[in-house]
Design a protein around this nucleic acid. Structure first.
Ligand SMILES: [Zn+2]
Length: 197
DNA sequence: ATTGCCGGGTG
DNA sequence: CACCCGGCAAT
């Protein structure tokens, strides 16, 4: 049985933009109807056209949806693939990374090195099996360009974070008044390295 | 209200 | 690189 992993992102990049250009409104009233992204417009390739001329109708983009998902991120150097199932990254690491690594090693060293590289790969694989929390938020911003072109800018943002552990970290342990006692990542508001999960 | 920390800055 | 901080989700 193969329950396929749903792919969230094909790289470690955490977002993408899309601009859906709506129909030209001949005389744009102030209460212009929203353009909706499902209109049959051909793939938009001239994104660089005059984005600097576009006016943002709202002072700030608005977040409309937010959903939380458990996901797993491959921690193989410069990979960062995010998949939504544990079996997915296990298979990804085995197929994409471990097999290729074994091949190059075996060809360069001739004799099979039994445990060394699979030990290294095991460490990466184990670290990649830690569940992460991905919050998916969709942002919308109404745009208006010269000549009454109306569009809706859509941005999907993926925020990948660790699941919160119950462990007390430096800030809680030493207190905000003894910041000099915190570990370096805690001082920088990064993941604590003194009190691990 | 407080805590933990990711992303995105600055020198 | 070292360092700081806004913002966000969890507590
Ligand atoms: Zn710490």
């Amino acid at each position: 049985m193969d329950c396929g992993a749903v792919e969230l992102s094909d790289s470690s990049s955490s977002g993408y933009w899309s601009v859906n250009r709506g129909p030209r409104s001949p005389a744009p009233p102030s209460s212009a109807a929203e353009t909706n992204g499902r209109s049959a417009t051909p793939p938009d390739e001239d994104l660089d056209m005059d984005l600097d001329q576009v006016l943002f109708e709202e002072p700030a983009p608005r977040k409309r949806r937010n959903s939380l998902k458990v996901a797993y991120q491959c921690l193989w150097p410069s990979c960062g693939k995010v998949l939504t199932s544990l079996m997915g990254i296990k298979r990804h690491i085995r197929m994409v990374h471990l097999s290729a690594q074994k091949l190059t090693l075996l060809t360069s060293l001739g004799t099979g090195v039994p445990g060394a590289i699979s030990q290294c790969g095991r460490a990466v694989a184990a670290a990649s099996e830690r569940p992460l929390q991905v919050s998916v938020s969709v942002w919308y911003c109404r745009l208006r360009a010269p000549q009454g072109t109306c569009s809706l800018l859509t941005a999907v943002c993926l925020l990948v974070r660790r699941i919160r552990s119950e462990a007390k970290k430096c800030r809680k342990v030493y207190g905000i008044e003894h910041r000099e006692l915190w570990c370096t990542p805690c001082r920088w508001k990064k993941a604590c390295q003194r009190f691990l999960d």
